[in-house]
């Protein structure tokens, strides 16, 4: 249990997807102009990360990793399919996003219309694929750990995009040098936020 809490806190603050690894930057910069849409996209990312990571974890453990097919037939024990992981992960993510979109549309039209175009966008958000690849690289041991890591990374991304959106709303009233307006100042603000997040780095859990 304590292990799970550690992974959760670590993935939100210390290994924050945005500030420590720059994942999901494209949509992070494009959709952070106001807080309301930022909240919508952030929630969708939490949800998709929380769903795709356990799915990819199971696939990796029982199909793709070295010797994983042994449960099917002992003869398959020396088959290593891990080179296929990129293509399988992205296929799972793309189909999962499609599935989530259809389920949400059927059971909660209100949520669907508020998330709108963000759901399909998430399929090519690097934070989602990055989550699966980090899960593979760091070799999480149980399904619970992988799920908690997914939810924590999603929450970290959510906090980051809402914070940036709030700052940008304020920023539009300030007098920025003309060539720096818009994109340039946003980059520098994200950099400064990243430096603030670095203060979590020394924390050992």
């Amino acid at each position: 249990m304590q292990e799970l809490v550690n992974i959760f806190v670590k993935s939100i603050f210390i290994d924050n997807m945005v500030f420590a690894y720059f994942l999901g930057m494209c949509s992070y910069l494009a959709v952070s102009k106001n807080v309301k849409t930022a909240v919508g996209l952030g929630l969708a990312v939490i949800f998709v990360l929380g769903v795709t990571l356990p799915a990819n974890y199971l696939l990796f453990k029982y199909v793709l990793s070295d010797g994983a097919l042994a449960w099917l037939n002992p003869e398959y024990a020396n088959i290593d399919l891990s080179f296929l992981s990129f293509i399988i992960f992205i296929a799972v993510i793309a189909s999962m996003v499609q599935l989530v979109e259809m389920v949400v549309e059927k059971f909660s039209p209100g949520l669907y219309s508020s998330l709108g175009i963000f759901l399909p966008l998430i399929a090519v958000n690097c934070a989602i694929l990055g989550g699966s690849l980090f899960m593979q690289e760091r070799a999480y041991e149980t399904l619970a750990q992988a799920t908690v890591f997914g939810l924590g990374s999603g929450l970290g991304w959510f906090l980051a995009i809402v914070a940036l959106a709030a700052i940008r709303e304020k920023l539009s009233y300030s007098n920025v040098p003309a060539p720096l307006r818009g994109l340039g100042i946003t980059f520098i603000v994200v950099g400064l936020m990243g430096i603030a997040f670095m203060s979590f780095m020394g924390i050992k859990l």
Partner: peptide, 22 residues
Amino acid sequence: ILPPMALILVGVFIWVQRSIQK
């Protein structure tokens, strides 16, 4: 060495480029 510096550097590049290409 820290990751945030990369963002600030790109921000500065954008600043320079936009000062040239108004």
